[in-house]
């Protein structure tokens, strides 16, 4: 066996090892760098401090893949309901003048309990549980309470 061949083989081996090593290390390093959206989407969602919400106002928040409407009623209570209308999946909105939930697509109206009051919606809106922990509002999906 010629020394040239051995040299070639050894350099091939070291290049190969280096390549393999980098092929292993590169994914690991990129894995360890935390992604920009650092927090995991969870089944209980922190929405923000209570003080941020005025009475008689609402906000739509993204709860996993479902939008949820968080409403603070006139007397300061919180209510969270699924924000997709049961008719054709449009996003509902809170009407602070009539204190009802309106779907603008076909004028579907729900009361603050999420019950379909008038218009085309066939079913009430699903309810989410709102709890306040240390002045911060948390939304939990109902079946997670157990």
């Amino acid at each position: 066996m010629g020394t040239n061949r051995r040299k070639f083989l050894n350099s091939l081996l070291s290049i190969g090892s280096l390549g393999a090593l980098s092929a292993i290390i590169y994914p690991i390093i990129s894995y360890l760098i935390p992604p920009k959206i650092a927090e995991v989407k969870v089944n209980s969602l922190k929405v923000g401090p209570v003080a941020e919400f005025k009475n008689n106002s609402s906000k739509i928040v993204k709860f996993g893949r479902t939008p949820v409407i968080l409403i603070r009623t006139v007397d300061g209570n919180f209510k969270a309901l699924e924000a997709t209308c049961t008719h054709l999946d449009c996003l509902v909105q809170y009407k602070n003048d009539t204190q009802q939930i309106l779907c603008a697509c076909h004028n579907g109206i729900y009361d603050l309990q999420g019950r379909n009051v008038s218009g085309p919606p066939p079913k009430p809106l699903n309810e989410y549980v709102v709890s306040t922990i240390d002045g911060e509002i948390r939304i939990t999906s109902q079946d997670e309470r157990s």
């Binding site: 066996m1 051995r6 083989l9 091939l12 081996l13 290049i15 190969g16 090892s17 390549g19 393999a20 092929a23």
Partner: peptide
């Protein structure tokens, strides 16, 4: 594909190395 190529290169080098050891 790239990783596999690198690994196959390494494997081939190893294979020859082993063959060299045997002879």
């Amino acid at each position: 594909g790239i990783t596999t190529f690198i690994f196959i290169l390494l494997a081939a080098a190893l294979y020859w190395k082993i063959k060299g050891l045997k002879s």
